[in-house]
Design a protein around this nucleic acid. Structure first.
Lengths: 241, 241
DNA sequence: CGTAACGTTGAAAAGTTTCAACGGATGTGG
DNA sequence: CCACATCCGTTGAAACTTTTCAACGTTACG
């Protein structure tokens, strides 16, 4: 599948609220421009699907942008419990977690192409590109806002609301309304992202299919009734003021 | 009660892991130094306990550091559901949420003193203090890491684990081991922070009291058995791997 | 074509919430 | 100074959502 072409062909504008979309395209270009000028900084890496290429506790020497593919960020608890922190799509930045160590793992869900930058070059890059630091700050700030929204979801939303919100988020980030959404992640990944069990995710999706909100296919979904899904995500059906 | 004196009398060092502590003291000093040099930037504000001084959706013209007191950051959902994003203590920074609008509310839980800075001055401040932008970036980055930990808590921890984690977090941020922890926030606030109901929070606290882990008093707690509490927070008692 | 991983479905079990009632603390007005 | 109202915290019991356990389809892959 010519995934790269499909992505390249997409317009920049998103018709729905891009609230959760961290628009790193401009930054990506800036970083890549830097890459072309410098020998040391900014290397392209490829990773196979299924490869965990970044480990919790490892020295955080690099940060990176996703050029192509889908990445899962996750944390492990003492026992087998897992939490998926987020999913990365082309244009997204990652790895600014902490100056010393990464505090999450990163796994390629599809074949990915990354543009990786050493943190040691950061000071020099700031000097070369005066706008870079501000852009990074704004980007991390926006990601913080997104993560705080996720806290609301995890703490106060029901299972159907979570799944509906998740589907709408995916739609905003990687397709147009009515288009098929590629589900690079498994039900277990979705469950760990939404704080649910895989069975609950499956059940809710089945229910959404039954009600005609979505169409399910292996590894993809299509939103058939965006309005209904939005209503679900926003808790219509709850009976409060 | 001479609460202000009590806070002022505390040393800067924390004996326990300061993982969740966003150490903004250095930044605070830098910002205050700037204040003293500029007429426009950096004003001190006072707010009464119970006052909501920052509203979701308002134009985000200022950011601020907490000089004294405790602040609650929270979001509201369409119906009455609330999520507490976090609590701010002296030295903490807040308001970098989004370039355009605040995406949460801020309420004073005690009388607070804030040092407020207009975002419009930011560019000038960056020029005056070359280290400022880097520090802000690092700070927001660290806060992101803390928020991601909270995602793990909300998505994958049981009620007792959440409450135990919360108490330990409070202890790290505002007292020494064995010391009384001031609970400026209500049970409802704790519940909204941990994604639980007030009743569950109350029940878990009662159970912790019964087991001798903590001592409860009106508006404060003392950790009697930090080890047991840590074990609880880390899921010992769960039977995995 | 067989095997393993993933996804779905059902039924029982568990944890948490909701509803309801009560006790205590705080603050206000008589 | 006390009575009263209100808010907050606690406790109990029932209800509900979600999880867990188990089995069965399905898909992908060698």
């Amino acid at each position: 599948m010519p995934r790269a072409d499909a992505i390249a062909a997409r317009p920049k504008a998103f018709p729905v609220i891009t609230h959760a979309k961290v628009d790193a395209d401009g930054l990506s270009r800036l970083l890549l421009a830097y890459t072309s000028r410098s020998i040391e900084a900014g290397k392209i890496f490829h990773h196979e699907a299924g490869e965990t290429f970044l480990h919790e506790g490892e020295s955080a020497t690099h940060f990176f942008t996703v050029a192509e593919g889908t990445v899962k960020l996750f944390k492990m608890l003492f026992d087998n419990r897992r939490a998926v922190i987020g999913f990365l799509f082309p244009g997204d930045l990652c790895g600014f977690s902490d100056a010393v160590k990464y505090n999450f793992n990163a796994k390629a869900l599809t074949p990915v192409r990354l543009c990786s930058f050493p943190r040691s070059e950061l000071k020099r890059m700031y000097l070369d590109y005066p706008g870079l630091e501000s852009q990074l700050l704004e980007l991390v700030t926006r990601e913080l806002a997104v993560t705080q929204d996720q806290m609301m979801l995890l703490g106060r939303m029901t299972a159907p609301e979570r799944v509906a919100s998740f589907l709408l988020m995916l739609a905003r980030r990687q397709s147009w309304p009515g288009d098929w959404i590629e589900l690079a992640m498994s039900r277990a990944d979705i469950a760990d992202y939404l704080g649910l069990s895989t069975e609950t995710v499956s059940r809710v999706l089945t229910a959404l299919k039954a009600s005609g909100c979505v169409v399910l296919a292996p590894n993809k979904v299509r939103i058939a009734d965006a309005d209904a899904l939005t209503q679900l995500a926003e808790g219509v059906g709850s009976d409060d003021d």
